[in-house]
Write a protein that binds this DNA or RNA. Structure first.
Lengths: 258, 258
DNA sequence: TCTCTCACTTGTCTTATACTTGTATCAGAT
DNA sequence: ATCTGATACAAGTATAAGACAAGTGAGAGA
């Protein structure tokens, strides 16, 4: 069988895209450039690109150019997805088991974040393909929590359930040792390392609407952060030193000072 | 591969703002001045500035000018100062102590990443105010490593030393238990949780130039990621939750399936 | 002290150019 | 019949260059 020109070009482009030769925020060479580079006509190059578009690897905008679809142009670098949506995307059968559902007096941290005295606390175990992979606790302001039922929470994510438009979120990632309760739930040894993520989600007006804590077993999970442009330093970006005695309080103080 | 002019200008401005070249509250150079400085039109400079405004880094008032928006918490933490610049800002004295410096046969992982048989391995202990806060190991391709001296490495960061333009980086964040060696260096208990970051840094051409591992004591450090727009309907971009047993391979497989 | 003026700033338009993709046509090769 | 090459044109984008309105601030002049 004679091999088609545009197929071999598509294969080569796929290889280059998957090897990350074309970074996020930038376009592929233009059709004309590719046409010259491969010594093929623009028709053929287009056919190759459209083949790759059908695969979902690339996309284009008229007048702008072609770009790798995996890393959308729009990302201002921080536009990162949430853990939940990633899992949903990755095709595993996600399952939620509600361990605890009820209104409580807000613990100090939740009260500070949400600004409510009474909150709905939901503790869930998240499973992927039947295996536990995360223990999540979510605190919701009383007013918003009243709209939610235990069954809904087991079925859907909070983002889908809450009647607010979600704005930004700040997520802290740290490490900790598994408590006995978490160890049992996650089927790991007590004291073994876990990733602990704390997330504050705000609505579009900047009001905190969700406060959540996620515990992941370290052996089974890790975060991968893509940094399109690296700052000139060796230390991983985004890391912040937390001094128990002053760290967070200091951050708040600085905020007020201005 | 083309890149957008206003994006590169925005990147440079962001760097200058975050390095506190423009004090909070004080104004930036005027659009005309920036336009002349970057040899770009005012339209382009404005686009860059408005991009940064969307990130919350700067703001403007008609007739007055552009100024750095002071609140550090609203800054995109993905780009926010590195841990060392934060340390310097808070008045802490950062110090590096080289533990080990020498050329070795590349371990399997480093070889796979860097594609070299022989590499320069530098192990360092980073201290803040005399207190150890990170144990860092860096592997550099032999060719690049030959230019470096032990004294240089103790004094400066690799980004300052290496004669390459740094492009993107991929960083994995995981949790682990402190080994006895790390525990001693970091002055923590053996087996206590640590954050482990593995970073692959590439130059602008996409060639891996640095492979590094960072170990942070969990009690003293945490990662903060700002997610400016949490849109569940949007495809996740930067952060991926990786399952060791299947994650990366599956990710690639899934991509092809589309 | 008050007011006016003037230089400078951002905000918002135009117009022009070079470059991009989107689409169509026609001709030749296999 | 299909793939490929060559070409032309429409439509969209990024950037440049400039004009003008409106807001700001400082200094001149009363």
């Amino acid at each position: 069988m004679r091999e088609l020109r545009y197929r071999t070009i598509a294969d080569d482009l796929r290889r280059r895209i998957e090897s990350r030769e074309f970074a996020a925020g930038r376009t592929l060479p233009s059709e004309s450039e590719l046409s010259a580079a491969y010594d093929a006509s623009r028709v053929t190059v287009r056919k190759a690109l459209e083949w790759l578009r059908a695969e979902g690897l690339v996309d284009s905008r008229q007048g702008f150019g072609w770009f790798a679809a995996g890393d959308p142009l729009r990302q201002s670098l921080g536009r990162l997805g949430t853990i939940e949506s990633q899992l949903a995307e990755s095709g595993v059968v996600a399952e939620r088991r509600v361990l605890d559902f009820g209104f409580i007096r807000a613990p100090a941290r939740a009260k500070a974040v949400l600004g409510c005295d009474t909150v709905l606390r939901v503790r869930r175990l998240n499973l992927a393909d039947g295996e536990p992979f995360a223990r999540v606790t979510v605190w919701v302001p009383e007013q918003l929590g009243e709209e939610l039922s235990r069954a809904e929470v087991e079925r859907s994510s909070f983002y889908e359930l809450l009647p607010v438009r979600v704005g930004r979120a700040v997520q802290s990632i740290g490490a900790a040792a598994a408590s006995s309760a978490d160890a049992e739930l996650l089927e790991i040894a007590v004291g073994s390392p876990v990733l602990r993520c704390e997330r504050i989600t705000e609505d579009v007006d900047g009001k905190a609407v969700l406060f959540s804590e996620h515990i992941f077993p370290a052996l089974r999970t890790e975060f991968v952060v893509d940094l399109p442009n690296v700052d000139p330093s060796m230390a991983p970006t985004g890391v912040r030193l937390v001094d128990e005695t002053q760290g967070k309080a200091q951050g708040r103080r600085r905020k007020r000072a201005q």
